[in-house]
């Protein structure tokens, strides 16, 4: 028989947040390592002299040390910090890796120039871009977002409506399907030269190209979604008194929505590509143009800075789309989490 009793269990001391050797090697240990990694990064900035002429080295070093201090306090105060403390604890392994990576990067570029210099700028030169070239960068971000958003919304809307009509009406399918088969698979960038000639402005040309790149996958997937809706759903709705408009709006479209979202994701990916190319070639604004401009001046730090911003924006857009999908498709089980 077990010798445990209820009172034994209740009398056992609750393991409160005490710093012991065992949890030093656990979550506290990783937090401590993260703090040390960032401290190392900070000190590496401040200790050795730079091989080049960069103005933000000291601020970067101090910033890294401040982060190290925050991580340290956050680690040992995690139990009292609630949500943010928990978040920090979860990300601690990543913070160790990032701190180590930054230290290595700093040492290999700014301090000992192990990597050839203009092509591999140190972290402080990228920080310099974000502080000193901010207005131009923000203008570019704004221009890119505006262009992308306009083209994407137009393309997605037209693609959705086209997809629903060919999925629903045979007559629409008869006329649109051949056109779609002929034009759709062509990469949107192939239209670039013609588009820039025939549209009144490079901005409208680029909007058209982005809409085209978005529209094709959205059309095809919406169409296949609508076409694959089980006829049993229509039978149910019809016996309950549904009119054709109800069948389209309340049966076909909701049933096809998971497919539509696949199309929206594909469209987003291909429209990013078109956006960057269009900005590099035709539009004199936006992050693609900024990249091009930075290359012209051999300003490698600016290029990396712009690339980082671009990747954050693209990733943000995908995240937003995932969130929207998760909200609209709560009824599906087992959806992929982004």
């Amino acid at each position: 028989m077990s010798t445990y009793s209820v009172s034994d269990a209740a009398a056992a001391p609750a393991p409160r947040a005490a710093v012991t050797l065992s949890n030093l090697s656990g979550s506290y240990g990783i937090g401590l390592a993260a703090s040390l990694a960032w401290l190392a990064f900070g000190l590496s900035c401040l200790y050795w002299p730079d091989v080049g002429d960069w103005s933000r080295t000291d601020s970067l070093g101090i910033g890294a040390i401040v982060i190290a201090a925050f991580v340290l306090f956050g680690t040992f105060g995690a139990d009292y910090l609630g949500g943010p403390g928990e978040a920090l604890r979860k990300r601690a392994p990543w913070l160790v890796a990032l701190g180590a990576l930054f230290t290595l990067w700093e040492v290999a570029t700014a301090k000992f120039a192990w990597l050839p210099l203009p092509f591999f700028p140190p972290p402080q030169s990228i920080l310099e871009v974000y502080t000193d070239d901010l207005p131009k960068l923000l203008d570019s971000v704004f221009a890119s977002v505006k262009l992308q958003l306009g083209g994407y919304i137009i393309g997605a809307t037209i693609g959705f409506v086209t997809g629903v009509s060919i999925g629903w009406s045979q007559k629409a399918g008869y006329w649109i399907h051949p056109v779609l088969r002929f034009i759709g698979p062509l990469p949107a960038t192939a239209w670039l030269p013609i588009a820039f000639f025939s549209f009144p402005s490079s901005w409208s040309a680029s909007t058209f190209l982005i809409a085209l790149a978005t529209g094709f996958p959205v059309t095809v997937l919406t169409w296949s979604g609508v076409a694959s809706v089980s006829s049993a759903y229509y039978d149910v709705a019809r016996t309950l008194g549904a009119k054709p408009s109800f069948l389209v709006l309340k049966v076909a479209i909701p049933a096809a929505l998971p497919h539509v979202f696949v199309g929206l994701f594909m469209g987003l990916g291909s429209s990013f590509a078109v956006l960057v190319v269009a900005e590099m070639i035709g539009v004199k604004a936006g992050l693609g143009w900024y990249l091009q401009w930075a290359q012209g001046w051999a300003a490698y730090a600016n290029m990396y800075a712009a690339l980082i911003v671009m990747s954050l924006l693209c990733s943000g857009a995908i995240t937003l789309l995932f969130r929207t999908r998760d909200r609209l498709l709560v009824w599906q089980k087992g959806v992929v989490k982004w």
Binding site: A232, D235, V236, L240, G241, W331
Partner: peptide, 24 residues
């Protein structure tokens, strides 16, 4: 008709499924 399969609309909650006829 109550069909051989229940064929509920998976994107609608129970309430919305039952409301289908009145809505239509």
């Amino acid at each position: 008709v109550v069909f051989q399969d229940p064929t509920l609309f998976p994107w609608r909650s129970v309430w919305d499924n039952v409301a289908l006829g009145l809505e239509a």
